[in-house]
Design a protein around this nucleic acid. Structure first.
Length: 464
RNA sequence: GGCGACGUGGCGGAGUGGCUACGCAGCGGCCUGCAAAGCCGUCUACACCGGUUCGAUUCCGGUCGUCGCCUCCA
């Protein structure tokens, strides 16, 4: 089994993936807070970790991917109040929208998608354990985590407690023993229409404990990879890690993997900045494959520039691969290309470098063409666009499958009878050298949503 | 202010102490009634200043700039 290395935020370096249970990998990635439709930045971790799961499965691991939904949070109360709907209803609607928006990416679903609202029992138990171990305390209906009781606090985000903002003026500061302490449970406040009963009175959990509890109840303590956006390193993941150390005496995850931000107008795409592109709109505009292609075009840890041009480019890339795929034959790829295919996966094994893998995939396509046509550098006429290569597509299928782009290999549907009839007429007109008629028919075909291409072996019809 | 990351050709974006990243766009060919698609070829790079080195885009230091986190945030 090939060694897979990932960049670990806590150690700051590339670490080999050493599964807790040999052959089995557990991944937990933080999903969105559902108070509005998600934007393409929210989709990045969903795509990265979905594809990482595919890659690990390709490498022979059995993978459990958990992506949570934060459906209990301050933001949701505020957004619901502004929209004049119940917070529970808004959360439910936006959760559904999230499932539908990410579903449209065509990558399938994670193995588990827990909701905070449905994990309330474990969350309350978790808090009670922290109180019992004196890592947390109740104060006026709130419960706070005692940050200074965790020796490892700051080890994930590389901050020293002394450097931290003392949190003056922050909500709840009058009830905290230490300004650094953060809320595990927040007492019910007037106007908050969703709340739960607890040993400390009615209220709702804090964000950080929700994730610790959801992750642990599905993957146990010490699972392999905890992922999420780099903006979550502090305080969210730092706090998750602290809670687990305090309650269980063990690290929550072996590796902490963080994706970079998508940038728009030169800064992080964020609802609060107002520079967002909603995922469902981008998918409708460019197609799911283009969105996936765009997201894997850069290394997951780097910031990624968002623009119309970047999406257009991704769409062009998708089109080119789809064209190439059409010219291959279903079946085994030539052994001469095994090395290129292997390199594709070797590159992914080095910190999941999808950008470099894509370059290798391009190389595979180029060599497949050269192999089929015998093109030497400088030859430009041996393989033409309409020529079927006769090369087996198994390697490409394997690579595209890991990238979530296997749909590019789907056969083109037959054109409707009406379109085929027009195309036949056009072919006849061309034989008669009646090009005016041929061009008019091409326009008619285009108006029906099809493109006609002429080749040595006759015409082809493709959906526009 | 503290911590961290980054500055690559028109654009997106990898990577490396010495050898073409890749893609998009452009340009020149091939093919073509025209077109589309495809194929071949091709031009623009490694922020700036020092240092280490036989040799640095790649290592070290500095300067300038950008971004992220420190508050909800993928």
């Amino acid at each position: 089994m090939r060694e897979i290395r990932l960049h670990d935020t806590r150690s700051g370096g590339l670490l080999p993936l050493k599964p807790r249970d040999p052959g089995r990998v557990g991944i937990y990635a933080c999903g969105p807070t559902v108070y509005s439709r998600i934007h393409i930045g929210n989709a990045r971790p969903f795509v990265i970790f979905s594809l990482m799961k595919r890659f690990l499965e390709h490498e022979g691991y059995q993978v459990t991917l958990v992506v949570n939904v934060t459906d209990v949070n301050d933001k949701i109360y505020v957004a619901a109040r502004n929209a004049g709907v119940a917070s529970e209803q808004l959360a439910r609607e936006m959760t559904d929208a999230y499932f539908s928006d990410t579903g449209a990416l065509g990558l399938g679903r994670p193995d588990h998608e827990p909701l905070a609202a449905e994990t309330m029992g474990p969350i309350i138990d978790y808090i009670q354990t922290l109180i019992d171990k004196e890592h947390a305390y109740e104060s006026g209906g709130d419960v706070f985590f005692r940050v200074r009781s965790d020796d490892g606090y700051g080890s994930l985000s590389h901050r020293r407690i002394e450097d931290m903002d003392q949190g003056e003026g922050v909500e709840g500061s009058d009830r905290k023993q230490d300004p650094l302490d953060f809320a595990l449970w927040k007492a019910h406040k007037q106007g908050e229409d969703t709340f739960w009963e607890s040993p400390w009175g009615p209220g709702r959990p804090g964000w950080h404990i929700e994730c610790s509890a959801m992750a642990e109840s599905l993957l146990g303590v010490g699972f392999d990879v905890h992922g999420g956006g780099s903006d979550l390193v502090f305080p969210h993941h730092e706090n998750e890690a602290a809670q687990t150390r305090a309650a269980r005496g063990h690290e929550l995850a072996g590796l902490w993997v963080h994706n970079g931000m998508i940038q728009s107008t030169g800064e992080k795409m964020a609802k609060s900045v107002g520079n967002i592109a909603l995922l469902h709109e981008v998918i409708e505009g460019y197609g799911a494959e283009s969105v996936v292609m765009y997201l894997i075009g850069g290394h997951y840890r780097q910031p990624l520039a968002f623009s119309e041009a970047a999406l257009e480019q991704a769409r062009a890339n998708v089109g080119r691969i789809r064209e190439a795929a059409r010219r291959l034959t279903e079946g085994d790829s030539p052994a001469a290309l095994d090395g290129v295919r292997d390199r594709f996966f070797a590159v992914l094994a080095r910190d999941f470098n999808t950008a470099e893998a894509l370059a290798v995939l391009n190389e595979w396509l180029r060599e497949a063409i050269a192999l089929a046509g015998g093109n030497a550098p400088g030859d430009s006429h041996l393989v033409t666009g309409d020529q079927h290569l006769g090369t087996g597509d198994s390697h490409l299928r394997e690579m595209l499958g890991v990238l979530g782009l296997e749909s590019l290999l789907a056969p083109v549907a037959d054109a409707p009878e009406q379109v085929r009839e027009l195309a036949a007429q056009r072919d006849h007109a061309r034989e008669q050298r009646d090009f005016a008629t041929a061009d008019r028919l091409r326009d008619e075909i285009a108006a029906l949503g099809w493109e006609v291409r002429d080749g040595a072996a006759g015409f082809e019809l493709l959906p526009l």
